Simulated assay, not measured.
Amino acid sequence: MYAARVLPDSHLNSEARDVIKLAMALVATLVALVLGLMIATAKGTYDAQTSAIRQLSANVLLLDRDLDEFGPEAQHPRDLLREVAALMLQRLWPADGAAPASLAPDEARPQMQAFVSEVTSLSPQNPKQQYLKTLALQLTSEIARARLQLYVQGGSELPLPFLVIMAIWLIVLFCGYGLIAARNPTVLVFLFACTLSVAGAVFLIEELVDPFGGIVRVSSAPLQDVITHLGQ
C-alpha cells in the first residue's frame, strides 16, 4: 500500500492493474492447490495413526478376553499384557505432557518378550484351549505389527523448501493485493483476516503431520479405555 502511494500513476494504470490481477490469480491458484494437497496428505497421516491406535487397542482387549477364556493358568500373561499396554500408553502420551511422545517400538520389548514366552509356554488341554492359544499368538503378532506401523508412519515435518516457497508466493500475493486495494480500515481488517486464515492453514498442516505432538493429537481414549477393562 505504501508502494502504491509513491509509485507514478503510469505504473498503476488500468493496463498495469490487469496484469497484476492476472499474476495474482496465477499465484493464488498455485497456493490453493499446494495447500489443499498438503492438508489432504497431512490429514491422511493423522487418520492412519488414529486407525492404528484403535486397531491396536481392539487387539489388546480381544487378546485379554481370549486369555481369560483360556483359564486361570493364563492369568500371569494377562498381567504382563496390562503392563505392556500401560507402558505403551505412557510412552505415546507422557503423563506430564512435557516429554515428547516416543514412537520407538523397543520401549516395551522386554515385557513383550516375556509375554510371548508366557503365552508360548501355555499347555492346552483340549481343542478349545489350543484354538485360544493359536489365536492369542496371532493377536500378539498383530499388536506388534500395529506398533511398528505407528513407528514407520510416525510424525514428520514440513520440508523447509516448501515453507520458503510458500512464504514467497504469499508475499507476492499480498503485495499484489496491497498495490490495487483501497487504503481504508475495512480493507486492512479484511486483508489481516485473510492473512490469519492462510497462516491457520499452514499451522493445521504442521499439526496434522505430527499426530503425537503439538495441539492436535491422536486421542489416547481408546487405549485408556481398554486398559481399564484389562484383567476384568
Results as ranks from 00 to 15, higher is better:
Gln224Val: 07
Leu122Val: 08
Val209Gln: 01
Ala25Trp: 05
Leu37Gln: 01
Glu207Gln: 15
Glu107Lys: 00
Val226Arg: 05
Phe174Lys: 06
Ala182Pro: 11
Gln138Glu: 15
Asp96Pro: 08
Ala98Gly: 02
Ile171Lys: 04
Met112Ile: 10
Gly214Ala: 13
Pro105Lys: 00
Leu208Gly: 05
Leu35Ser: 06
Met1Cys: 05
Asn126Gly: 09
Leu62Gln: 00
Glu15Gln: 13
Leu26Thr: 15
Arg91His: 10
Leu148His: 06
Glu206Lys: 05
Ala74His: 06
Val119Leu: 06
Ser141Met: 05
Ala108Val: 11
Phe115Ile: 12
Ala114Cys: 12
Asp96Cys: 13
Glu83Asp: 10
Ile171Pro: 06
Ala48Ser: 07
Ser141Gln: 13
Arg17Tyr: 12
Leu63Asn: 09
Ala99Lys: 13
His11Asp: 14
Val226Thr: 08
His76Gln: 14
Gly44Phe: 04
Ala48Phe: 05
Ser220Gly: 03
Ile171Trp: 04
Glu206Trp: 10
Ala144Glu: 03
Leu139Trp: 02
Tyr2Met: 10
Thr45Pro: 04
Leu158Thr: 15
Val6Gly: 09
Leu103Ala: 12
Leu191Gln: 04
Thr195Ala: 03
Gly36Ile: 13
Ala201Thr: 13
Ser10Phe: 14
His76Thr: 15
Leu87Phe: 05
Phe115His: 12
Leu12Tyr: 10
Tyr151Glu: 13
Ala108Tyr: 03
Ala144Gln: 06
Val6Asp: 13
